[in-house]
Design a protein around this nucleic acid. Structure first.
Lengths: 220, 220
DNA sequence: GTAAAATGTCAAGGCTTTTTCACGATTTTT
DNA sequence: AAAAATCGTGAAAAAGCCTTGACATTTTAC
């Protein structure tokens, strides 16, 4: 999977942009026609497509439509045309952002950074040295992977998504085990214990998962 | 969690937009000041914020910055100003899209639809009557939940993400079990069997998970 | 058509996760 | 300060998941 696919027939401009992006640690590929772009995308996939509208042969709009048919990959449209119609039809068509040529490279980089952040950081919950990815179900403490069982993971996500809020035990139990569960609430305290052992620096003196007496727990 | 939070001090306009959105089955709340918007957002959360820049008191940019500090919730900025600076600073700041007042309500609805689709459909893989959500780890067949074990789920996602492609058994095995696994490849065929029993209409005549003799499997 | 190779099936077992239970420790109430 | 309520802990039982091996079935090659 490529990070960024640049679709641009001006090789000099594409090369320049490519250098800048690689300097920011993105992996980049360049296609100078719409057809090549689609074939590269088919083969390797991409996290973001920077798409020039004016291309020889198949134009950018056609590329955008084709890609939109099969995926939600973010597309940033680049165009020399200034007509409003183009901008709107591009965005409605499914592009995530739009920039006019000639553009300031810093602004383009900022837009790309923004798209990446909004699009690919959304499934991560972060708090200090703790990082939880809801898609890959992975937990990292100081960037070291922490093994979690399913129940522990669900419990951690619930607590972290309500950081600072006290969740009462009935609520937690219903969220994780379901209201029709036959298990006992004692089960919850055992899972809290294991979670503390995995994420607290000193499990005997929990700083992150705090007990709220008579109520429940909260993540701080 | 609210679907859409409208931040707009013109109550008539906000009400109108609200009606249109509710007609499309979104849940909607309205805030007429930036402060109220932030407090509503704190309390309930929102999937998308439609944010007018010109507000009494705290302006839209300030609201946008505050929300961006703590989350990646999509923001659609609405503004009467036409200066280019505003547009750009709003977008770079982290907004997902931009529309100028007075706007055509259909265009706004299209933009909102686009944001929702790009932002919230990305973790779902759909194929015909089968729907897989990678975040909640849930699988639905004809909208009925199908229970999956972890290995079955991973295997299904791998196959579906490579729909139409034949994956050879070594590849599948390395992806799911890891290259240093001591398990035998026989394990894979057993999991394939279970997966077929859960997602195929007739598990004895699999239509979706096909065997490619001497190579591996593919999802069609 | 037959033998060889590859895949499918089933049930048993082993392993991990989850739950339960009993008891000890801590906090709150009286 | 004692009693009551609540929470924490460790071990063991229960449940669920994964793997394995033996054998059946299907496909391919000769």
């Amino acid at each position: 999977m490529i990070d960024i696919l640049i679709v641009e027939d001006n090789k000099e401009l594409a090369g320049l942009l490519c250098d800048f992006l690689r300097a920011e640690n993105y992996t980049v590929s360049i296609a100078d026609t719409g057809e090549k772009a689609l074939s590269l995308y088919e083969k390797y996939g991409a996290k973001l497509i920077v798409l020039d509208i004016m291309l020889p042969g198949m134009d950018g709009f056609a590329v955008c439509r084709k890609i939109r048919k099969e995926s939600n990959t973010p597309i940033l449209i680049v165009s020399a045309k200034t007509e409003k119609e183009d901008k709107l039809s591009g965005l409605i068509l499914g592009a995530d952002d739009y920039i006019e040529k000639p553009y300031d490279i810093d602004i383009l980089l900022a837009k790309i950074g923004g798209i990446f952040k909004r699009r690919y950081a959304i499934d991560e919950i972060t708090d200090g040295c703790l990082r939880v990815n809801k898609v890959s179900q992975a937990v990292y403490k100081n960037d070291c992977p922490v093994e979690m069982t399913a129940k522990e993971f669900d419990l951690l996500v619930l607590l972290m998504e309500n950081q600072g809020k006290t969740l009462n035990k009935d609520y937690i139990f219903n969220q994780i085990w379901g209201s029709d569960s036959l298990s006992e609430q004692q089960t919850l305290t055992v899972h809290i214990k294991w979670l503390r052992q995995k994420i607290e620096d000193d499990p005997k003196n929990p700083k992150k998962i705090q007990t709220v007496w008579g109520v429940g727990y909260k993540y701080i």
